[in-house]
Design a protein around this nucleic acid. Structure first.
Lengths: 198, 198, 198, 198
DNA sequence: CATGAATGAGCATTCATTCAT
DNA sequence: TATGAATGAATGCTCATTCAT
């Protein structure tokens, strides 16, 4: 029956269950039963339960890292930031199940090794998107741009519209928030951030 | 030693630990040890572990219910909605620990009876704040207004400013989002929501 | 049925099984079953499996420490050493089950925290009993005096004679070994050990 | 890479680990990893884990059997016994790793089939060396002669001197013990042991 | 108001072993 | 000769919960 794809199947089922019922409440027994194998089989493919989660996050980590690297190479400015949001929107969308898992298991994430490493990525993104010298409210706008996208997909559950339409709407609002913040602080702060003299 | 306030102390410690390390990862043994009592003592005051959580949520539920009831009595309109946001901001702030717990244990909340009942309240708030007929992007703005406040306090951790200043900045952004959405859709949709003919 | 003595009963059964079938081969399930309680009950009384062993060793550690302390206060010399052997013989005899456990689970002992701490005691006893400057063969005699007693009780299994008679016979041989070693090296080495000038 | 010597390498690593960390605590996975092969490879060469141990003991069993056979052919008497000790000293020394394993895993040995069969050999050696009708204390001397050699190598760890010097010192003491026992009981008991009438 | 003692169910993990390839 | 994939049974341990005192 299964042929070489068991590892993949474990990841699929694990992600399904982790995001559905939470990491702690999902036991390896459950995962194994869903797959029709023994718990021990899981251990042939992954060294620990946490390892399964880590392997899942590789899908999300790589594109994030690439996005951060790309952003670091660009001129800081509104253009770049808007593009970062656009790309991040896609990254989140591609890994929406995992993203939901993250979103709903924050307390757990904090204890997982991968949690820390992922939080760092988030902080970097925030750093890229934020306007350091700006008003508190504009800083909130920048953060909100990011977190609106995080919360976005689950926020609109009761509303009609295709998944893709929703994504675009969320992105629009996020970009709007950023643009607003920029409109009031942009030039000043970017110059400061770039370390340039007046 | 302490007299009669044990129930209160249990709630304090439980909330502390639940919000710090997550609901599932916090065992009754830990709570008991922090308090210097036996696990059995907890069972004198609460019937189950879940009961402790439920009792914690009463602090947050009552003000929410009152807020919802109050909003239902008002004329729908921007004024009312802005005031709802303002009041909700305070409610969240007063219960910020619990709120953090909610925020970080969403997966767990879904399995807890209180989770459902709290989600309903949220849906009601969303319903009050939202503009049903509006563009998707404006609906996102309305949701984002609410969720920005949810994420707000933890979003701004790395930034200087007093807790109260941050709260106000977050509120300002949330109200802004709502106002923007209104500006474009307001009159039409409110009439519709009120079920009134043109 | 059991009343307050469960902890004691656990220790008894554990020692029985540990010394009979070895530490690793004895599972907590077995111990629990022998007692007619659940595994979890064991954990009420002891924090870990290793903790059970540690508690068992307290019976042996205290008299050993006392013996060492006493010996350190005496004048080094044959008299003292013979008396150390005599007392040690009794200590071992009183804890013969535990002693057998130690004897037969040396590999395990090495991994147990208590193992190290017990080995140190042994080294101290050896140090007390040994003649540092003597011939190799006399040093062997001193060590053998101690280890003969260790091996003694199990060495004589096939032989008729009461337990007490055997103990005394073993002690006699051990003391003999020590006396022989002394006869040839005694005065010289004791002076040296005591750090006295000629 | 290696050709045909895998079986040998398994034995080497197994003995290394068994004697270092104990039989039960050493898993086949560990052995396999140390060798850079799969667990399954071990099963190509040995039917069970116990089989590995058995194969190891063949190195020790053959010389022991030969020693016993030789001794049975000799005239019982001090001469023979001293020679038995001398030869046994060499046998133990040649297989000192295995011997250490035996020494430190007695509890385990008792459960292994090879354990019983090895114990029988020991009993035979004891029988050869012992003086049946003698005082208890002299019987202890005979046993102690054997067991001093068993414990010997590990007894002298803290002491300076070459491995070979120590072996000879231990042998000397063992032979001394036997000679002492003989001196007092020799003639009588040997005649009895040989089943001869006065 | 609280404890001491215990339970039953469950968990993550490990192990020796098997077998088709 | 060996491996890749899996199993079944067990292990040490933790948890929420109960109840007589």
């Amino acid at each position: 029956m299964s042929r070489g794809n068991t590892r993949q199947r474990i990841q699929d089922v694990a992600l399904e269950l982790f995001s559905e019922r939470g990491y702690e409440k999902t036991s390896l027994r459950e995962i194994a039963e869903h797959l029709g194998v023994t718990k021990a089989a899981l251990y042939y493919h992954f060294k620990t339960k946490e390892d399964i989660v880590i392997s899942l996050f590789e899908d999300l980590s790589r594109p994030c890292d690439e996005l951060i690297a790309w952003a670091r190479e660009q001129q800081p400015g509104l253009e770049t930031r808007l593009e970062v949001l656009r790309r991040y929107s896609e990254v989140l969308h591609d890994a929406h199940r995992l993203h939901r898992f993250m979103q709903e298991n924050q307390a757990t994430m904090r204890e997982l090794s991968i949690g820390e490493s992922f939080k760092e990525r988030l902080v970097e993104l925030l750093d890229i998107v934020r306007l350091p010298g700006a008003d508190l409210s504009d800083q909130v706008r920048c953060s909100a741009a990011l977190f609106t996208m995080h919360a976005g997909m689950f926020t609109l559950q009761g509303i009609e519209g295709s998944q893709e339409d929703k994504r675009r709407a969320v992105l629009e609002v996020a970009q709007d928030l950023l643009t607003t913040a920029h409109g009031r602080n942009g030039e000043r702060t970017d110059a400061a951030a770039a370390g340039e003299p007046g």
